[in-house]
Amino acid sequence: MAKQLAAISEHLRAFIEAQHVYFVGTAAPDGRVNVSPKGMDSLRVLGPNRVAWLNVTGSGNETAAHVLQLPRMTVMFCALEGPPLILRLYGTARMIQPGDAAWAEYSARFPPLPGARQVYVLDVDLVQTSCGMAVPLMDYRGDRDDLNGWAATKGPAGLDEYRQLKNATSIDGLPTGLPAHADLTS
């Protein structure tokens, strides 16, 4: 039932672009494995072997810490509507933050979000599909705007303060590469 492919086909690209939620998995050499759900309009297929996703400020920053230690990443999609399918993209990730030379180029691919913190670019070396027949059917009712509202209320200075307090290290104490203070002009 599972198929391994060298690249994202046009059919799989259309599947990815239709999904409302996806999951990102990372791990450092030691410590906890992190699996994080993502939503909003935050993922782009850049080519048959590359995707990028916009990360916003949240309660942690595990992905950043893990990618700095070991840049492997898995992005998983599962059909919650329509025919069953699970799709995993395996590869090597790099992190782009505000102030980095590539930030303007990559962040421009996404709608402006008040909590935008990083863009991750994943170079995909393996695409795997599996049946997904045990994944339940669910109805999409809409995006939540709670996180955007929270970030907008905080403002740039409040987000910087929050990130310094909550996002500078992982739950295992690993540094996340967050700048000491963000460039609030980006």
Rank of each mutant, 00 (worst) to 15 (best):
H66T: 04
G91W: 06
N34P: 00
D123G: 10
S42Q: 09
G58N: 10
K38A: 06
A79F: 03
M133N: 03
G99I: 08
L70I: 01
G115T: 02
S42F: 05
N49E: 10
G39L: 12
V119Y: 04
A116I: 05
N61W: 09
G99L: 15
L70Y: 14
W103A: 11
P29F: 11
W53L: 00
N55V: 03
I86N: 09
Q118L: 10
Y106C: 05
D123V: 01
R144T: 13
L54T: 00
G132T: 09
L46I: 11
R141V: 12
A108G: 13
D123R: 13
A52M: 02
R44M: 06
T63P: 03
D125H: 12
D143V: 04
E105V: 10
T74R: 07
L46K: 08
Y90S: 12
V121P: 12
V45P: 05
R88T: 15
L137V: 14
R88Y: 05
M95R: 15
M95P: 00
A104L: 08
D139G: 07
T92F: 01
G39F: 03
V45R: 07
P114F: 07
P83Q: 13
G31Y: 13
Y140M: 02
V135N: 10
G115D: 04
A52N: 04
P29A: 03
G142N: 08
G91S: 09
P48N: 00
